[in-house]
Amino acid sequence: MRIAISGASGRIGRQLVPHLLARGIVPLLVGRDPRRLQTMFPECPSAGYKDLATSLDGVDLFVHMAAINNDSDESAASFEAVNVDLAAQVCAAAADAGVDRFVYVSSLHALDENSASDYARTKRLGADQVLSNPGIDVRVVYLPAIAGERFSGKLSLLNHLPRQVGRAMAYILSAFRPTLSLSKVMPLFVDPAFFTDKENRVVLTQRQANNLVYRGAKRAVDLGFALAILVFFWWLLAIIWIVVCTTSRGPGLFRQIRVGRGGKTFTCYKFRTMYLSTPQAATHEISQAAVTDFGSFLRRTKLDELPQIFNIFANQMSLVGPRPCLPSQKELILERQRRGVLDALPGITGLAQVNNIDMADPQLLSRYDQAYVQRQSLLLDLQIIWQTLFGAGAGDRVAV
């Protein structure tokens, strides 16, 4: 495989090129100043952007990392010129030269639709531009802070600490912000199977399943929340239970089998919000007429979810995670299984819920669930909790 890389003089590129050379891959380095690139990496050929029509002959993969980063004080016009216009021009030149595959490297910042920074805004536009090119197979890859021989981005401060201390601090900090080892990026450049997946936007992070700091802190937050509800708001649970029982026929609690971590089923508890005769089905398949008057209030305020603290105590659910579905929702289960969503504990609230995504669209929901699992961190969990407390999301919507 012959690879061309733009942005090799950047933070990630300076570490990535030596890794490629160690694997026996000598990339073509592309930039505004080919002489500087030649000085930095004398083993590699270099070319300018104006020379792409002739220099890309025989190249299989173009990796575009050139960008104005989010810590720059450049003008908005400069951000657009580099992150959007240059990306589109390079992608078009690669397609014209017969390059098979194109990778547009972005960062997790650009995934935050609420971020209006020049960097996030232009990287989103740049991704849309390259994905619209029909002449080449494009993947947009979103990366977090990269940990190689040296740390990059906001983690670069750790480079001033003793190596072992820096590594330990990075491990702790990775529970708060997603990170990625540079060695995990390598499959992009040496494994063509990366392009066989139908998803053209790929988030690469080291998932938190093996991070003991994250798992311990998340479990502590879950248990703290559940204990606080039980100790300080038991009276509220009792009042809601009494009102549910007295305003409609049936029990106060509703029990339903749901699919949890690893595809295993468990009994999920909620306050009953529907009439006793309502059939067992996904919420979006049930008519609004099946919801009691008090049930509408509970669903609107999300108070019907409070009994799930007992699922938290049993370690069947977490405060934040993908919402558990019914065993009958086969399409959603298969999508979640394919995307690795079932590796995580289901949650009372989640990224999809605060963005008003429910189970009516299994494809869209599973993509949001996957995004949560890939970007999982303590800060993201706290952000979702905060949004939920202040009313984000409408809960599981019933059919109109």
Score class of each variant (00 low, 15 high):
Ile3Pro: 15
Ile5Tyr: 08
Gly7Lys: 06
Gly7Thr: 01
Arg11Glu: 08
Ile12Gln: 06
Arg14Tyr: 05
Leu16Gln: 09
Val17Leu: 09
Pro18Leu: 11
Leu21Gly: 06
Leu21Ser: 06
Pro34Asp: 07
Pro34Tyr: 02
Arg35Met: 08
Ser46Arg: 00
Tyr49Pro: 01
Leu52Tyr: 12
Ala53Lys: 09
Ser55Asp: 06
Leu56Trp: 06
Leu56Met: 12
Phe62Trp: 05
Ala66His: 03
Ala67Gly: 04
Ala67Tyr: 03
Asn69Val: 05
Asn70Leu: 04
Glu74Ile: 01
Glu74His: 11
Ala77Asn: 02
Ser78His: 14
Val84Gly: 09
Ala87Leu: 02
Val99Phe: 05
Val99Glu: 13
Val99Ala: 03
Val99His: 02
Val105Phe: 13
Leu108Met: 02
Ala110Met: 02
Ala116Cys: 05
Asp118Leu: 11
Asp118Gly: 06
Tyr119His: 05
Lys123Ser: 02
Ala127Trp: 02
Asp128Gly: 07
Gln129Ala: 15
Pro134Gln: 07
Pro134Lys: 11
Ile136Asp: 09
Val141Trp: 00
Tyr142Arg: 04
Pro144Lys: 07
Ala145Val: 10
Ile146Trp: 13
Ala147Cys: 14
Phe151His: 13
Leu155Gly: 02
Leu157Arg: 11
His160Pro: 00
His160Ala: 12
Pro162Phe: 05
Pro162Thr: 13
Val165Cys: 11
Arg167Met: 10
Arg167Tyr: 12
Met169Gln: 12
Ala170Gln: 15
Tyr171Lys: 15
Ser174Trp: 05
Ala175Asp: 01
Phe176Gly: 14
Arg177Val: 09
Pro178Tyr: 03
Ser183Ala: 14
Phe189Gln: 12
Phe189Glu: 01
Val190Asp: 15
Pro192Met: 04
Val203Thr: 13
Leu204Cys: 02
Ala209Val: 13
Asn210Val: 02
Leu212His: 10
Leu212Tyr: 08
Tyr214Lys: 15
Phe225Gln: 03
Phe232Trp: 03
Phe233Gln: 09
Leu236Asn: 09
Leu237Lys: 07
Ile239Phe: 05
Ile240Gln: 09
Cys245Tyr: 08
Gly250Val: 01
Gly250Glu: 11
Gly252Pro: 00
Gly260Ile: 00
Lys264Val: 00
Lys264Glu: 08
Tyr269Gly: 04
Tyr269Leu: 14
Lys270Leu: 11
Lys270Cys: 03
Phe271Cys: 00
Thr273Tyr: 05
Met274Trp: 14
Leu276Met: 09
Thr278Asn: 06
Thr278Cys: 15
Thr278Arg: 14
Ala282Trp: 06
Glu285Tyr: 08
Ile286Thr: 12
Ser287Trp: 07
Gln288Ile: 12
Ala290Cys: 13
Ala290Leu: 01
Thr292Glu: 14
Ser296Arg: 15
Ser296Phe: 04
Ser296Glu: 06
Leu298His: 00
Thr301Met: 11
Lys302Val: 04
Ile309Leu: 01
Asn311Ser: 10
Ala314Cys: 13
Ala314Asn: 08
Met317Ile: 01
Met317Gln: 10
Ser318Trp: 08
Cys325Val: 06
Gln329Asp: 15
Arg338Thr: 12
Arg339Leu: 15
Asp343Thr: 11
Asn355Cys: 12
Ile357Glu: 01
Asp361Met: 05
Pro362Trp: 01
Arg367Pro: 03
Tyr368Cys: 04
Tyr368Asp: 08
Val373Cys: 12
Arg375Asn: 15
Leu378Ile: 14
Leu382Glu: 07
Gln383Trp: 09
Gln387Ala: 14
Phe390Pro: 06
Ala394Leu: 09
Ala394Trp: 06
Asp396Leu: 11
Ala399Gln: 07
Val400Glu: 05
